[in-house]
Nucleic acid binder design. Structure first.
Length: 503
RNA sequence: GGCACUGUAGCCAAGUGGUAAGGCAGAGCUCUGCAAAAGCUCCACCACCAGUUCGAGUCUGGUCAGUGCCUCCA
């Protein structure tokens, strides 16, 4: 992706408010270090292909990041890759997810991690998700994780037993503050614990002893083993973002126990942790959460075979990140049409700007400058207001749609000053493009100047032939030509400036 | 069972107590040889009941329906 440019925000731009899960309300964002934002996002466990639910999360936080950049912040965006195979469940005989996959695919565990890591990266690139500033891997930070565990043991918040180390939940009264759980409330609900080495069934593993045959294992002060699921995020965020970094993000389903455990580990070890917590809601299909375990998922690769990634992204930003997004085939048909409406307006503006350089604009067209200039400014202001209010992308999108009506109206009315067209185009490019991540990919409908010179010339020939028929009122022939072209995906539109084509 | 959350037009989806954004689909009209594109117009008793208020989709209580987390999950 192109790097967003430095566009110093006007002083009148609204303060940014975000919904903090910890405080359970929208709060004004204030950076811990002026003009800088440190973000940590829980990344994928790379043992299978990413699906649409992962895309919702990645796009949601990508937009948050992009908006901060737009507002002039330098963002350090850290998103981890979990390449340690965590257990399928909490019992001793649970299988390691990556090892299981490795056996299935007859690959080395690290081959599995590599394969799905790159598959994930490909998917994200196609979705227009900016690459993280730092993308640390869990297996590359075993030492940091061990150190953190040692700190917890030293402070009496963790204990070793039989080669495993557990976090002592009872030693940390704040455990439960993020998810609003009280230890005693849960007592009833916790299922019977098979393993007896924990002091309390809710204690969670920081380090697990590797049983014989467990492939992914590392030496530690407690013998060969592997890190618990939660500790990597605490260790890596501390290393790359330091204490009291700004924003920690992730899926709502990670709120408990994962994020709860992260906070407990970091703070019990004596480190300040995230200042704001953001959680995206789930993506559903048929009213049910799309998830790997339910098997009701559509992988991004499958999806991209029939839906343009830009359309997928457009659909995702069409609902708020804290709302449930209902996915259906109909949603894509709708998104396709909606996105086309926006991108056509962008294309049309570009076409006009190419064919009507500023120098040729006569002063009598200046009357058209006013309305569109103001409308573009209003769209930008509406967009900023929406995004500043907890990243309300649907409302931001509505501002672009309103502008689109204004643009189409102005263009249909006659010539518009290049200045007005440029300011409208700037709204699409800077806000829809750089902030929402749209209009950047291959989804943008091809314009003649994008295509090879040969194709352009050929089309000119075809259109000239068709014009000839039309001038002679040989409509059967001209319509046949149009029909043929439509069959191969080329649409002809007759305008008062002559015919044009697009695909 | 515990803890959260949601219920807005055919579909998707915003909504910060003051006569319901936006998109898709649909209907009519304008433009057009036709079509497409575009524009204009039309299209919601905000799950239900009660309360607070001059006024409630928006606050409070209750009812119904559904979802998420409490076990791996974005």
């Amino acid at each position: 992706m192109t790097q967003p440019d430095i566009n110093p925000p006007a002083t009148s731009l609204p303060d940014i408010y975000l919904y903090d899960t910890l405080q359970r309300q929208k709060v004004k964002f204030e950076a811990s270090v002026p003009d800088k934002v440190g973000m940590y996002l829980c990344g994928p466990t790379v043992y299978s292909d990413a699906h649409l639910g992962h895309a919702k999360k990645e796009v949601a936080f990508d937009v948050v990041r992009r908006y901060f950049i737009h507002r002039g912040y330098a963002v350090r965006y850290v998103s981890n890759i979990t390449d340690v195979g965590h257990l399928q469940n909490d019992s001793d005989d649970g299988e390691d997810k990556i090892a299981r996959r490795a056996a299935l695919e007859k690959l080395e565990p690290m081959e599995v991690a590599e394969k799905y890591y790159w598959s994930f990266m490909d998917d994200m690139q196609r979705l227009g998700v900016l690459r993280p500033s730092i993308q640390p891997r869990a297996t590359g930070h075993i030492i940091e994780q061990i150190e953190l565990i040692q700190q917890l043991i030293a402070k009496g918040h963790a204990y070793e037993t039989g080669g495993s180390v557990y976090f002592d939940v009872r030693s940390w009264p704040e455990y439960g503050k993020l998810s609003g759980r009280k230890l005693d409330d849960q007592e009833e609900g916790v299922r019977e614990e098979v393993r007896s080495e924990k002091r309390d069934p809710r204690d969670f593993a920081l380090w697990k002893r590797a049983e014989a045959g467990h492939i992914m294992r590392w030496p530690s002060p407690w013998g060969d083993g592997f890190p618990g699921w939660h500790i990597e995020c605490s260790a890596m965020s501390l290393k790359y973002l330091g204490e009291n970094f700004d924003i920690h993000g992730g899926g709502l389903d990670l709120q408990f126990p994962h994020h709860e455990a992260e906070i407990a580990q970091s703070e019990a070890a004596g480190h300040g942790f995230a200042r704001y917590w953001m959680h995206n809601n789930m993506l559903t299909i048929g009213g049910e959460k799309m998830s790997k375990s339910k098997g009701n998922f559509t992988t991004l690769q499958q999806l991209f075979e029939r839906v343009d990634p830009q359309i997928v992204r457009f659909m995702l930003v069409g609902s708020h990140y804290r709302s449930i997004t209902e996915f259906s085939e109909e949603a894509f048909v709708s998104a396709q049409s909606g996105y086309k409406r926006l991108s056509e307006a962008v294309n049309e503006l570009e076409r006009r700007l190419v064919s009507a350089p500023a120098a040729t604009v006569s002063t009598q067209n200046a009357q058209n400058t006013g309305p569109l200039m103001q409308q573009a400014a209003k769209a930008a202001a509406d967009f900023e207001a929406a995004m500043s209010d907890d990243f309300n992308t649907p409302r931001a999108l509505a501002a672009l749609f309103n502008l689109t009506t204004d643009v189409n109206t102005a263009l249909a009315a006659g010539e518009v000053s290049t200045q007005a067209m440029q300011s409208a185009l700037k709204v699409y490019r800077d806000l829809g493009g750089k902030v929402l991540g749209l209009f950047g990919g291959p989804a943008t409908a091809g314009t003649p100047q994008d295509d090879g010179a040969l194709l352009g010339t050929l089309m000119d020939v075809v259109l000239q032939a068709r014009d000839h028929y039309r001038l002679n009122k040989q409509y059967a022939q001209s319509d046949a030509l149009r029909g043929k072209l439509q069959e191969v995906g080329v649409t002809i539109e007759d305008t008062k400036d002559g015919a044009r084509w697009k695909r």
